[in-house]
Amino acid sequence: MLLIRCPYCEEDRPELEFRHAGEAHIARPERIAAISDEAFERYFFLRANPKGLIYERWRHLHGCARFFNAVRDTVSDRFVMTYKAGEPKPETLPEETGR
C-alpha cells in the first residue's frame, strides 16, 4: 500500500483513501463542440502511458475529496511529488531524497 501526500491535507495518507483518476494536464478544449475529429481524438482517446515519470491525477476520495496532481515513476511506483489541481506542470522536480 502506497503512501500518498495530499497537497490539501498536507500529510502522507494511506493509499486506501485515494483513487487514481487518469493522466493529468489534459485540459478540456475551451470550445469543445467546434474542435476537429483529430483534436477530439487527441483530447479524449490518446494517452502517453510512459515508462518512467508520469503526470497523473488522483482524488483523495475518502479524505478531503479533492482532485490533485502527482508525478509518479511508473517503474518504481514512487511518488516524486504531488501538487494541487490547477497548478501548472512543475518545471523542475525535487531531487530524489534518501533511498
Binding site: 483518476a21 485540459a27 478540456r28 491525477r57 482524488r59 476520495l61 482532485f67 489541481a85 490547477g86
Partner: peptide, 13 residues
C-alpha cells in the same frame, strides 16, 4: 457524484 466533482473541481473550478 465522482464524475460531477471531477468536472467541477478540475474543468469548471
Amino acid at each position: 457524484l465522482n464524475h460531477m466533482e471531477d468536472y467541477l473541481q478540475t474543468e469548471f473550478p
